Simulated assay, not measured.
Amino acid sequence: MNLNHFLKIDREKAERLIKSLHFLVDELLSDAVTDQDFEGCIEIAGSIVSNCEELKRMHRSEQVVQLHEIANQFLSKGLNVSTIKRPTLNLEHPVITEILRNGYPKEYQQYDQEHGDDTEEEDE
């Protein structure tokens, strides 16, 4: 079982969840289907979904795990590091949505008219 895609603090729990999944699928679910216990199948399937969602939440790429381990090494030496996310442009911002739907507000258009819009004069 490869647990390299889980943080060290999550590996023991991930291993338990994976073993539980194997038991649920290989033993309990197949027995419930054989016994035609469809209500039991639904409950087992719910447990499988729950375990898979938890594993998905804990699962990281190997690079993230390595970076986390490096950050912990720095922290153990007294150097606190943290991750920084690149800011993203929120195109669903209410102002941007309003401009995309209706054009610029009248206040902006009035400002252009009062201060002269050089682009219109150059076109003539």
Rank of each mutant, 00 (worst) to 15 (best):
L29M: 10
N90F: 01
K85V: 07
V25T: 07
I42M: 02
C41G: 12
E62W: 02
S50C: 00
F6T: 03
N90T: 02
D123F: 14
E114N: 07
N2S: 14
H59R: 10
Q109F: 02
H59T: 04
R16G: 10
E62F: 09
Y108A: 14
H68G: 00
R57K: 11
K8N: 11
G46V: 00
D31F: 08
P105W: 04
H5G: 15
L24C: 06
V95T: 03
G78C: 09
V95L: 05
Y111G: 02
L91N: 06
H115M: 12
N4Q: 13
N4I: 09
D112H: 10
E43P: 05
I9Y: 01
E12F: 14
T88S: 01
D35N: 13
D26T: 05
V33G: 00
R11S: 00
D37M: 07
Q109C: 09
D123C: 00
D123G: 04
M58C: 14
E92C: 01
V95I: 07
T97S: 03
P94Q: 02
R16W: 11
S20H: 06
P87T: 04
S76E: 05
T119E: 08
Q66E: 08
D26P: 01
M58L: 15
I99R: 01
G103S: 07
T83G: 02
H5Y: 05
R16D: 09
P105I: 11
H68I: 00
S76A: 15
S82P: 06
Q113M: 12
C41T: 15
Y111T: 14
R16H: 13
E92G: 03
L100R: 02
E15Y: 03
D123K: 13
E120S: 12
L79I: 14
Y108S: 12
C41I: 04
E92S: 02
A71R: 12
F38W: 15
N72F: 05
L29H: 11
E98C: 06
K77G: 07
V33N: 14
E114L: 15
E122A: 06
Q73N: 04
M58K: 14
I96S: 00
L7M: 10
G116C: 10
T97A: 05
N2Q: 09
Q73I: 07
L100Y: 03
E122L: 13
E121A: 11
R16S: 12
D112A: 04
A71T: 08
N4V: 11
R11M: 05
D10R: 03
I48F: 03
H68Q: 07
S82Q: 12
Y108D: 11
L21V: 01
L91D: 06
D26V: 04
L100G: 05
E43L: 11
K13N: 08
L75V: 05
L24W: 02
E121Q: 13
N51G: 08
L100F: 02
K8G: 13
S82A: 09
V64H: 13
R11Y: 08
L24I: 05
L100S: 01
M1G: 15
V25N: 11
D118E: 10
E114Y: 05
E114T: 09
L21T: 01
T34K: 15
E27H: 02
K85A: 04
E27Q: 10
N4M: 11
I42S: 04
C41Q: 15
T34C: 06
E124N: 06
L17N: 13
H115V: 05
